[in-house]
Design a binder for these strands. Structure first.
Lengths: 242, 242
DNA sequence: GATACGGGTGACAAAACCGTCACACGAGAT
DNA sequence: ATCTCGTGTGACGGTTTTGTCACCCGTATC
């Protein structure tokens, strides 16, 4: 686990040379590999080529609006998963943050202490390197975000209650296989015996409703339970001939 | 990313040789590396030594209660993170499952088809290998489980509402650094401007209450926001002298 | 085709949750 | 020491969520 490890790479995007240098100095002092870019275009190219583990992006870029750079990074498949820390001047942010909603991984308000930035860098890297980069379950057009307890379906956010979220989580945990009623009641409600209840059915119904056209992905397996249907292409048993 | 990859290892713990062999055969047919143990003690030793990616544990062990083996695996730091699939005879489980609550990663009821077991194995491995090793955030005695939306504190389960859970999630996301009021309101409530509200404080209060003695870990930073305090030993800035 | 069983559905009432407010309290500033 | 600003706290009402029940409908079985 330790042998193949190399230090994380951080890309700093800022048009102010002084600030950029300061940040890079701090990064290198921490032992990180640091890359730099002075404008959005350059940032994109470097990000695509070197796939850094983290990007520090100053929103105050002259040529290009920092936010649009951010969006481009998010939209490009090669750079989409890279966490971004945004730098922003106090006050300026309040309006703009609307645009990206909870999209940014972190942001920090200028003026900031190098110490604070480094703390955030380390924290974000720890999250994205050691464990999950995202805690997001993606199945076809379903996107379950455990961090924000949100479901996105076909890109549209769907409001689910806690129970519905848990239920969907339990179902999608193993797409394609049947979850017994008892198992679901255990996982979602904590019931350990009690199986004679319509509660599960009711919640399934409500969930299906909210899923709209995709509600049919939750299939009923009579007298057993429910199954979140797998799409044909999901690569089932290789051993089975048919 | 592909070069250093090796097939996952699965440990099968069962005292029935026939069943064990059947499972191992299936595992190897899938290309997994399979290990076996016939009792709890052996299982522990192997798990600690080889650190498999997954454990298939039959609860029907003669010498040792399967559940206590499970608990030992969970308590040992070397094996704590390894997902466990439990095998159990139908009907026998209902009472026992109480003990572990939502602790098991998955379970399957005997009799089962090899196909179903393999499906679960693959699903669980996909979760634990590809993305998060376990969507669980552990900070000292805090254990935030995003899969079950549950908090365990000192091992005790604490009931949190959705809002409280999100709030704690936002705070623990970056232990040691201050989260501004506006940032928290953005992350938890989605408010993009509005900062003049007592809502945040109220929820902080409720959260602190539920955290009991550990409530003080949430520190107030006057006129800025809140901070989830880092414990001294968490390795802060190496560069800073003091 | 008749019957039995299990799931789907709509309504409803209890419970939980959440945001707000008024006020108390304490820390900083002058 | 006094004043001021920001946070802590308890209470309250409105809203959402949730479990249950009665009833309908589809499917499997004979």
């Amino acid at each position: 686990m330790d042998s193949e490890f190399h230090m994380p790479t951080v890309l700093v995007v800022d048009d102010e040379k002084d600030l950029r240098d300061l940040i890079m100095l701090n990064l290198e002092r921490e032992g990180f590999e640091a890359l730099e870019a002075s404008d959005g275009l350059e940032a994109l190219k470097i990000a695509q080529r070197d796939e850094p583990d983290l990007i520090v992006l100053d929103l105050m870029l002259p040529q290009k609006d920092g936010l649009s750079v951010f969006r481009q990074l998010r939209d490009d498949s090669r750079t989409a998963g890279i966490p971004v820390i945004m730098l922003t001047a106090r006050g300026k942010l309040e309006e703009k943050i609307t645009g990206l909603e909870a999209g940014a991984d972190d942001y920090i308000v200028k003026p900031f202490s190098p110490r604070e930035l480094m703390l955030r860098v380390r924290n974000l890297l720890r999250r994205s390197l050691s464990a999950a980069s995202s805690d997001v379950i993606e199945i076809d057009e379903f996107r379950l975000d455990k961090n924000h307890l949100k479901l996105h379906l076909d890109g549209e956010p769907i409001d689910l209650t806690t129970t519905e979220f848990k239920l969907l989580l339990a179902l999608t945990e193993a797409p394609g296989l049947v979850k017994e009623r008892g198992e679901l009641l255990q996982k979602v409600w904590g019931y350990n015996d009690l199986i004679q209840t319509r509660t599960l059915d009711t919640h399934i119904k409500r969930l299906r409703e909210k899923l709209g056209i995709h509600g049919s992905r939750i299939e009923t397996v009579r007298s057993v339970g429910y199954r979140f249907a797998e799409r044909a292409d999901t690569g089932d048993f290789p051993s089975s001939g048919t």
